[in-house]
């Protein structure tokens, strides 16, 4: 309990909120590497996943690959990349991209694949071109699952981005490593709390995004229906 209070005191100390090792700087760094890792992973995995879901080819391969990739320990990967690329951000970024890819890939292909085949046939039947089917029908309907995949990836990466501090002077992980080795557990716990708070905030944001995708993008009719209902309610009440 006193440890928790020490961590609170550490967080309350203005000295820890300024400079290169201050909480704002470290938080921005942490968000930056999280964003970069998820961004790169999305740029690779989203098109690939959508394509696989659309063509329904190679789904088994993706399932196996992303399942296997999830089992890779990120710290081991970081050491490998560190030996290959040297210390610094490149190795941690590469390791985090590998961490983020499976969730995004699985979300993208599962979302697109799950779109009702009858709906796709209907879209073709009314004369939509393949591009229109993809962007006008499949992607909007898949949106909640696709966003869910990105959400899972963000959560994993923001928590694991502490490892960036393993080989670089970067991110909130610095508080954890510095605290661990010098037995400054208040600093360590404060760092952990900051990472948890950041993960929670991002989780809330993505939960909202996923809800938006489900109600507004995948099923715009639902909001229309609601509107109609209110209109209908008018005269009866």
């Amino acid at each position: 309990m006193s440890l928790l209070m020490d961590a609170g005191a550490w967080l309350g100390d203005p000295a820890n909120w300024s400079g290169d090792n201050g909480v704002p700087t470290r938080t921005v760094q942490h968000l930056a590497i999280t964003g970069a890792a998820v961004g790169i992973a999305a740029a690779v995995a989203l098109p690939a996943g959508v394509l696989i879901g659309h063509t329904r080819r190679g789904a088994g391969l993706v399932g196996a690959l992303s399942g296997a990739a999830r089992a890779i320990p990120t710290l081991g990967l970081l050491t490998l990349f560190g030996l290959a690329y040297g210390i610094g951000l490149k190795a941690s970024l590469a390791a985090l991209v590998v961490l983020a890819v499976p969730s995004i890939l699985a979300g993208a292909y599962a979302g697109v694949q799950a779109v009702d085949a009858a709906t796709v046939s209907a879209a073709r039947a009314v004369g939509m071109r393949p591009r229109q089917v993809l962007f006008g029908v499949e992607l909007p309907l898949a949106a909640p699952v696709v966003v869910g995949g990105v959400r899972a990836a963000v959560l994993q990466v923001v928590a694991t981005a502490t490892l960036a501090a393993y080989i670089a002077d970067y991110g909130l992980g610095r508080y954890l490593f510095a605290g661990l080795k010098s037995r400054d557990y208040a600093q360590m716990l404060a760092g952990a709390l900051l990472v948890a708070a950041l993960a929670l905030l991002l989780e809330l944001a993505f939960a909202a995004a996923q809800r938006y995708a489900a109600t507004r993008i995948a099923d715009p009719a639902r909001s229309d229906r609601n509107d109609t209902r209110t209109v209908q309610k008018g005269p009866t009440s």
């Binding site: 210390i87 393993y166 080989i167 002077d169 610095r174």
Partner: peptide
């Protein structure tokens, strides 16, 4: 100057 490498003088440190 200082750069953290948390592998306790292991292979990453030697590589760096």
């Amino acid at each position: 100057g200082f750069t953290p490498i948390e592998d306790g003088g292991g292979p990453l440190t030697v590589q760096a």
